[in-house]
Design a protein around this nucleic acid. Structure first.
Lengths: 236, 236
DNA sequence: AGATACTTGCTGAATGATCATTCAGAATAT
DNA sequence: ATATTCTGAATGATCATTCAGCAAGTATCT
């Protein structure tokens, strides 16, 4: 919906979007013509995630993104030069948001290794990260990643840091608790399971966020029974 | 590479593909003009998997598929009516092949529940199923599944039967061995982990088939220590 | 304050490239 | 001769990209 107002002189003076698509950054940001370059880029990235989620990678068009942002057809090439750039920027944004999220979850966690593992597993199923919309966008990129080195690098960067962290946590728990398996395979299976649960959530079979979290918890509790219970990390 | 032969009258009589792309069904099948409808369809499905693996879903074109099969441009619409039909048939084929594979692995397995679980986990990493090429094709479909009900149904069908089987195996092991966790979440986390490992294999980070299998084994051994060891199922 | 020129953000019609689909007719089999 | 399988040029649809021009904001001058 577009609102067009006319001033007393009869000239068009305001032409901006009304309604619910305002997904830019901070609330104080200016809209319409006044929006800053960064705000506009973020707005287009959000519209891209919407489009990826709604129509999938291969049906995402610049026209759909522009419509979703309530702007004109040429807008993406104006701000991003090309469709490819927009998609890379979108993946970059999601990748950073994901990384920031689990890092801050680790910082907020208690000092014990057990509570840190508990926190990082829960972070993956947090409402901020784990929405239908974003999972669908992730999956769209995964589907293209193998044939596009740029996507592969960005998805890979996401995983490497995460997995190293999980390996370290598993190694620390082993040192503390006397488990007798290797940290690397254990961490790999844990990370793979978390991604697999995301995949399930996207695919929309019966799996819900609650069931997925329950399954993830069941896993880590069985693997580290001396440190974790179904109710949470044991006090050291 | 295309071979063109001329008969004594100077007319072109044979025009068929030479080389290594002959991935159709049985060896006795005829080639060239003589190929049966089913052979031709299978040949095109294999070329589709190749194209999906090489170029990804969004860059897979009918021209590329036809080239890959060594046939002309209109061939797909002749045998499948539309691109969409070809892709659905391809997914159907992969889905059936996958299902047949783990079902026959279960049949070949020993009678004990432990050896059946062992077999089904190994089946996922068998060289016949778990190739770069096929994993990439699966991933391409997953990426589009959320916005295409047909794909979603076919991918879902793949999973539901599998997961029910795994739940039953987990429940039987629990009954036998006195483990105290619920079969459903445990089976879900196991299935999710197997899919997640496939995802890793496709993405081409350092994960190899051997490491993936090792991680999967580490998991089930930890979960069912009374029935499984790293070397295989325990004799009952 | 008002007028003027200049900058920046944005628009949307036009362009050209890519690609699925069609189909008339050629090649081959029966 | 007739039916079947296949070809490849033509067609039309979709879509990314371009760009001339408009509108809003800002600086400078009177």
């Amino acid at each position: 919906m577009t609102v067009v107002l006319k001033n007393p002189k009869g000239k068009v003076t305001v032409k901006m979007r009304a309604g619910g698509a305002e997904q830019g950054s901070g609330d104080g940001e200016k809209r319409g013509r006044k929006a800053s370059k960064e705000t506009r880029r973020q707005q287009l990235i959000e519209a891209t995630i919407d489009s990826l989620a709604k129509r999938g990678y291969s049906d995402t068009t610049l026209a759909d993104v522009a419509d979703g942002a309530g702007l004109s057809r040429g807008i993406v090439n104006f701000h991003f030069e090309s469709k490819e750039n927009l998609l890379v920027a979108t993946l970059q944004f999601m990748s950073e948001e994901y990384g920031d999220h689990w890092n801050s979850a680790l910082e907020k966690a208690g000092p014990s290794v057990a509570s840190r593992l508990w926190a990082i597993v829960h972070a993956d199923f947090d409402r901020k990260i784990c929405t239908k919309r974003k999972l669908a966008a992730w999956c769209a990129f995964w589907g293209e990643a193998k044939s596009r080195p740029t996507y592969q690098a960005l998805c890979g960067a996401r995983d490497v840091k995460y997995q190293e962290t999980v390996i370290a946590l598993c190694a620390d728990l082993k040192a503390e608790g006397g488990y007798d398996y290797e940290p690397e395979p254990m961490a790999l299976s844990l990370c793979a399971m978390l991604e697999g649960l995301w995949l399930r959530l996207m695919m929309g079979d019966g799996t819900t966020r609650e069931k997925a979290l329950e399954a993830a918890i069941a896993f880590v509790v069985v693997v580290f029974p001396r440190h974790l219970t179904l109710q949470g990390p044991k006090p050291q």
